[in-house]
Write a protein that binds this DNA or RNA. Structure first.
Ligand SMILES: [Mn+2]
Ligand SMILES: [Mn+2]
Ligand SMILES: [Mn+2]
Ligand SMILES: [Mn+2]
Lengths: 221, 221
DNA sequence: TACAATTTTTAGATTGGTCTAAAAATATTT
DNA sequence: AAATATTTTTAGACCAATCTAAAAATTGTA
């Protein structure tokens, strides 16, 4: 397999993420936003990625990954998430600290290393944020989950993932005692601001804002 | 601390290695050889590195690292060797496989990661090839060692390092049963081709070529 | 449907890293 | 010391990745 630059790889990941989000071609502007770069730079790069057969690109029409591009992006996500597990499980970093390091580690080129790492970590299926880790063939484990905001009073479930990966949000969750696997049930929903009162575990009651409830993935019991 | 490109970092390492080897300024050609690039490219890069205060550079006079450049190079070597230990000890790679991966991993930017990794590995003082791992302050553990070729018949010691890091040499050592820590003594020296007959451990006798004996570091008993 | 707003692309420039070929400086040999 | 060989630098070019400003295309609205 050819090698690609870290920049090219980051573009592929960005396009993958955007297509996954909306399930339609990613726009130049959206990619520019995701990559914190100018639209002009994106157009340049799209031309190059198309030339290398990594994306389908028609001027003004947005872009989608080709099979090849998709395989590559999935591989990057696999590496990113495995390294996150390593940093958390083995080096004892917390879930709000791993992003920047994984962002670099995902570009290490060595198929053998990825497989050994996967083995060493016990072939985890999810990363520290609850995101699925694709297997070596690029298959994601699917999990039935809903936003906390979609639960009705009386319903209960386990926290299985976060939608917002920002350190600020993750640290907030640490602070109020919510971590992956935590059990909770909806005690009350306030129409006023769409906040919810939840019972966490046995005896910990908290009111969570609408924003928070829209960023927590719950697997219903 | 500013960040430098992987290329700049690799140049610093090359210069460090060359200065260490001869203890005098590194020449443009020597660096070009080390980096597998043209002398013209090296001259270009030297100008840039000098501008950034990483090297002392006078046209036609060769180059030496500044304090700043030396600190940086030492940090890279620290990372490189720690990652090698990780790959060997944790991921079970062999000593002839780790070079390429460590060459990439050494560029991961995160001081915290290095320290955690060091901790995780039990603060090793030497890497899988017997090379000393500098501590966080850049201090190398010094070890009294000689080339096997410098030993006389009757003398004995332990193999503590290799001078040649090529997979071919390391695989050869694996093949004839020499690994770090192995005990050996000189049974006989042949003037004809400067090869030596050594006793390895209890009962394993081998004749080693001049070339091999010049690439093994021995700590005398 | 025409005009305005927005998005996207193009044009032209810059920086880092590389190359080959030629010129200049240094080192070696006679 | 002069001639020759070697090393190093310069000149000029190329590619990847980026930028700003301007032009072109598309989309939304009156
Ligand atoms: Mn990345
Ligand atoms: Mn994650
Ligand atoms: Mn390297
Ligand atoms: Mn080593």
């Amino acid at each position: 397999m050819e090698n690609f630059s870290q920049t090219e790889e980051n573009y592929l990941k960005a396009i993958f993420k955007l297509s996954e989000r909306d399930d339609k071609p990613a726009s130049t502007n959206a990619i520019a936003g995701e990559m914190s770069t100018s639209a002009a730079s994106v157009t340049d790069m799209l031309r190059r990625l198309a030339e290398k057969g990594l994306i389908h690109y028609e001027k003004y029409r947005g872009v989608a990954l080709t099979e090849k591009g998709s395989k590559l992006a999935t591989g990057l996500i696999r590496k990113h998430r495995l390294w996150e597990v390593f940093l958390l499980e083995k080096l004892r970093f917390s879930w709000d600290e791993v992003q920047d390091m994984a962002e670099q580690l995902e570009h290490i080129q060595s198929p053998e290393l990825v497989e050994r790492l996967d083995d060493y970590l016990g072939r985890p299926k999810f990363d520290p944020h609850g995101d699925p880790i694709p297997d070596a063939d690029g298959n994601f484990t699917f999990r039935k989950q809903v936003f906390l905001s979609a639960l009705n009073p009386g319903e209960a479930g386990a926290v299985v993932g976060v939608n917002d990966h920002s350190p600020a949000f993750l640290q907030y969750l640490d602070r109020i005692g919510i971590k992956l696997g935590a059990h909770l049930s909806i005690a009350e929903r306030f129409d006023y601001d769409e906040s919810v009162r939840v019972l966490l575990g046995e005896a910990n009651e908290q009111v969570l804002s609408k924003k928070v409830s829209q960023n927590l993935f719950i697997q219903k019991f």
